[in-house]
C-alpha cells in the first residue's frame, strides 16, 4: 500500500510538471528554428534579457520545418521562423503564410539580402565552398567552376551531401543559371563521380580525415570543425569559387513572422533584435556560428575571408525562389 501511495505521488508530481510546462505565460514566443542550437540559445537568452519575453524553440532542418508549417497551416503554434536558407522562406511566402516585416527592421540590412516583397528578413550569410585535403589534391587542380565537378576526372574525388538542406539552394542556383536540363546533367555527373554523405558535417569530416579529396560544403562547417579539432589537427583547407561562379553562391539565413502568430508585436520585436547591433555582434564574434552578419559595420569572425573579397554569382535570394524544382531534380537524379 505504501508503494501504491508513493507511486500515486510520483504520478501526481509528473502530472504537475506537465501542467507547469504548458505554454501558459502571456508573452512566450514560439520560435521554429533551423539554426544551430547554440546560436538559438545565445540569441534567445540575450533577447529575454532585453525584453523579458521568453522564447521556446523547436529545432529542425529548414525544409522540415517549412513543411511542418505548411502542414500546420493557420493553426501553427510558430510565431517566428528563423532558418538557414532563403528558399524555405520563399516557399512559405508563396503560400501566403508570412506577415510583412516592419520596414524599420528591413532597413537595417542591405535590401538585396531580404525578400523583395518585404515578407522576410535576411539576417546572416554564408558562402558555398569546396573543402579539400591538400594531401590528396593540389589547390591548382581544383576546378574553376562548380559544374566541372561533374566531369569524369573527378570520379571518386568529390564528396557532397544532397540530403543536407544547404545543398538545395545550390541546385536552385544552377537551375536558375543554366536551366533544368543542364542542372540534371550536372547532378547525374556528380552522382557518378561523387561520394554521398548524409550531411555537410559528415562531408567536411571525411575530407579532414582524408577519405575523400574534396567536398561541396557551406563554409561554416569547415570553421566549426577547425574550432573543434584545433588548428594543429586540421589538415584540410577551404577553396573559394571565383569570378562569380555559381559555386560561390551566398546562402542567406533569414527570419520571418508567421501571419498566424498571435504575438505579432513580440515577433516583430524578435526580428528587429536579430539584426540589432548587439545580436549581430554576438553572432559575428562567437566561435560558434561563422556566418557573416548582414548588418553593415558589424565585422564577421576574424577567421573568415572578408565578405567583400567573396565573388558570388549574381543571383539574389528572391531570385533563387523556393526549393521545389531543386528537390524534384534531386529525386529525378536518384540522390534523395
Amino acid at each position: 500500500m505504501k508503494r501504491l501511495i508513493a507511486l500515486s505521488i510520483l504520478v501526481a508530481g509528473l502530472g504537475a510538471t506537465e501542467l507547469a510546462n504548458a505554454p501558459a505565460q502571456a508573452e512566450t514566443l514560439t520560435l521554429y528554428s533551423a539554426q544551430h542550437s547554440q546560436v538559438d540559445s545565445m540569441l534567445t537568452a540575450e533577447f529575454t534579457k532585453q525584453t523579458g519575453i521568453t522564447v521556446q524553440v523547436r529545432e529542425g532542418e529548414g525544409p522540415d520545418i517549412a513543411a511542418q508549417i505548411l502542414q500546420e497551416g493557420a493553426d501553427s503554434p510558430a510565431d517566428v521562423f528563423f532558418t538557414e536558407n532563403s528558399p524555405e522562406l520563399n516557399l512559405l511566402d508563396e503560400k501566403g503564410l508570412l506577415a510583412p516585416v516592419d520596414l524599420a527592421t528591413l532597413k537595417q540590412v542591405p535590401a538585396q539580402y531580404s525578400a523583395a516583397d518585404g515578407n522576410w528578413l535576411g539576417v546572416l550569410a554564408r558562402e558555398n565552398v569546396l573543402a579539400y585535403n591538400p594531401a590528396l589534391i593540389k589547390e591548382s587542380a581544383l576546378p574553376a567552376s562548380l559544374l566541372d565537378l561533374a566531369k569524369p576526372e573527378w570520379k571518386g574525388k568529390i564528396g557532397f551531401a544532397p540530403s543536407d538542406a544547404d545543398f538545395l539552394p545550390l541546385v536552385s542556383a544552377v537551375i536558375k543559371q543554366y536551366g533544368k536540363t543542364a542542372a540534371l546533367a550536372w547532378l547525374n555527373g556528380l552522382k557518378a563521380n561523387g561520394i554521398v554523405y548524409q550531411d555537410d558535417e559528415g562531408a567536411v569530416a571525411a575530407v579532414a580525415r582524408g577519405s575523400v579529396a574534396a567536398a561541396i560544403i557551406n563554409n561554416y562547417y569547415w570553421y566549426r570543425l577547425d574550432t573543434d579539432l584545433g588548428p594543429a589537427k586540421i589538415d584540410s583547407k577551404v577553396y573559394h569559387f571565383k569570378d562569380g561562379d555559381v559555386g560561390g553562391l551566398i546562402n542567406i539565413s533569414g527570419a520571418a513572422v508567421l501571419k498566424s502568430s498571435k504575438h505579432q508585436a513580440a515577433a516583430q520585436k524578435f526580428l528587429a533584435f536579430l539584426v540589432s547591433e548587439k545580436a549581430q555582434q554576438i553572432l559575428g564574434q562567437s566561435d560558434i556560428d561563422y556566418e557573416y552578419p548582414l548588418r553593415p559595420g558589424v565585422p564577421p569572425n576574424a577567421k573568415l575571408t572578408p565578405f567583400k573579397d567573396l565573388a558570388p554569382p549574381a543571383i539574389n535570394a528572391s531570385q533563387l525562389g523556393d526549393d521545389q524544382d531543386a528537390g524534384a531534380l534531386l529525386q529525378q537524379a536518384g540522390l534523395i
Binding site: 529542425g60 532542418e61 525544409p63 517549412a66 511542418q68 540530403s163 554523405y197 529525386q331 534523395i336
Partner: peptide, 23 residues
C-alpha cells in the same frame, strides 16, 4: 544508421519527412 550516415529505409523516411516535399 542515422549516426553512421548509412542509408536504409528508416533513415530515408526520416530524410523524406525532413525534406517534406510531399506528405
Amino acid at each position: 544508421f542515422a549516426l553512421l550516415r548509412f542509408r536504409t529505409f528508416t533513415t530515408a523516411i526520416y530524410s523524406a519527412y525532413r525534406a517534406g516535399f510531399s506528405g
